[in-house]
Amino acid sequence: MENFTLNRRKLGTLATAAAATLAVPALRAQPNLEKPKLAIAVGGKAAFYYLPLTIAEQLGYFKAEGLDVEISDFAGGAKALQAVVGGSADVCSGAFEHTIALQSKGQYYTAFVLQGRAPQIAIGVSTKNMPNYKTLADLKGKKIGVSAPGSSTNMVANLVLSRAGIKPTDVSYIGVGTAGAALTAMRTGQIDAMSNTDPVMTMLEQKNEVRIISDTRTLKGTLDVFGGPMPAGCLYASAEFIQKNPNTCQALANAIVHGLKWLQTAGPGDIIKTVPEAYLLGDRALYLASFNKVREAISPDGIVPDEGPRTALRALSSFDPSIKADRIDLRKIYTNSFALKAKERFKA
């Protein structure tokens, strides 16, 4: 009888331990992380373009993967890219097309988890400075605000203007960031037009301060502008970093895909409670209106669509003579291996 009691107690203890393990999945055995403490550079973290990164950070998904992540925010993607290339950051949360631009210069960087399946960038002309705007040709010689010169907002502007025969040198690009400074630049007349992300563009649009002339905040708008699916925000790193730190990259992909999964079902109240107050730019209602506009542009699973890399290459080579399409190896600019594993893990 004593043995039976002891065995029953032992079984109870084991059952309790098993239940605890199931209740806290983050505590299950993690692969050895080669670099648990690392730095991520991002250009314009408050933009919806990088919302999955913020969600993963705010909800503790990086920590759940055993990562200690330091995120440095820059004015635009081009600045964040410089931080990674210069070695002050390990990974960039940036635009997918940067991997193509880098390869054209002999630098091999690979996107390993997607945050956005559409660029979420809109171009608007100032209703104050250009009330009589009619066609793209009217922008020749004008000042155009972008998050930072060389960023994805700059790239989209170059692409759209090139179709009207306007070269990058025919306009003046001015870096205005992606938040309050961008709003101020437009409202004070410092710029004549702007290529930027939400929530800034929706806020200006709803107050009739800009007239939208090109829009990639929806899948349809992206198809109209690019002629195919256009991968946007992603995490990318040097091919060498990924090769040396596969478990770390998997953990990063897990955290982002976990965030993407959360965003699929999150309501407006969930978003407001999760993002930092400063991201709302003083107007919760307009922030949520912006989110609803770009929601479908957020990747559902972190996977780069098959046709996406070709679309990106076609877009860049159409206006940038330094990018020779026949010299770019698309197989080296992205991998879906990490995102596919993360999707499998969080499919339930």
Rank of each mutant, 00 (worst) to 15 (best):
Y108M: 13
A83R: 05
K220F: 12
Y334H: 08
Y287V: 02
A148P: 06
A47L: 00
M230D: 11
Q103M: 06
L6P: 02
L33K: 03
L288G: 05
M201H: 04
M194E: 13
S322G: 09
M186I: 05
N254I: 07
A122K: 09
G175S: 15
K220T: 15
E97F: 08
L281H: 01
A29S: 15
R284C: 02
L281F: 07
K140G: 09
T169N: 09
A289Q: 11
T218E: 04
L286M: 10
S322V: 14
G76W: 11
I144V: 06
K45S: 07
C234E: 10
Y108A: 13
A122N: 08
S299M: 09
D329N: 15
T216K: 03
P119C: 10
V210P: 04
K142G: 05
G175Q: 02
L139M: 08
K63R: 11
F74H: 10
N196G: 05
L81C: 14
D224W: 11
Q107H: 14
T188R: 13
K273M: 10
D320Y: 12
V176Q: 02
A18G: 07
I40T: 04
L183I: 03
K143N: 14
I298T: 06
G227Q: 03
G282M: 03
Q206M: 08
E57F: 10
T274W: 06
G302Y: 03
I121D: 07
N3K: 15
I71C: 02
P131Y: 01
R331S: 15
H258G: 01
K324M: 05
I212D: 02
T110W: 08
L81S: 13
